[in-house]
Amino acid sequence: MYLIFTAIAALVSTVIWYKNAPEDKYMLSTLSLIYWGATLMWFVDHVMAYLIEGGEFFEITLDATLLGVTVVLLGLLVWLIILLVKDPKKVFYKVLHSKR
């Protein structure tokens, strides 16, 4: 389930990035690459587990759904921290500069 959630998040963030490209004021390329990285890794994990152990490809349980939501939120949190630290719009500089 978390593979599906992350893949959807990767697709949505890529579409929003492309809509605003070539401008990347909000570093959406970073957000989409974070989700794509996790999607690719979990895809390999799921394929290998399916080939070795068999069973269901997608784990559809409440636990996996909650994990999916948490993973998407963590991706957003990581992106937000990177955005605030790098501050591409120089918001902090402008705020601090105007207060002087």
């Binding site: 992350t6 970073t30 974070i34 989700y35 794509w36 990285g37 890794m41 979990w42 993973v71 991706g75």
Partner: peptide, 16 residues
């Protein structure tokens, strides 16, 4: 960004 993004989210899954 692909690798670090994947590693951070997979680390959460492993902690979970």
């Amino acid at each position: 960004r692909l690798l670090w993004g994947g590693v951070v989210l997979l680390a959460l899954e492993h902690i979970w």
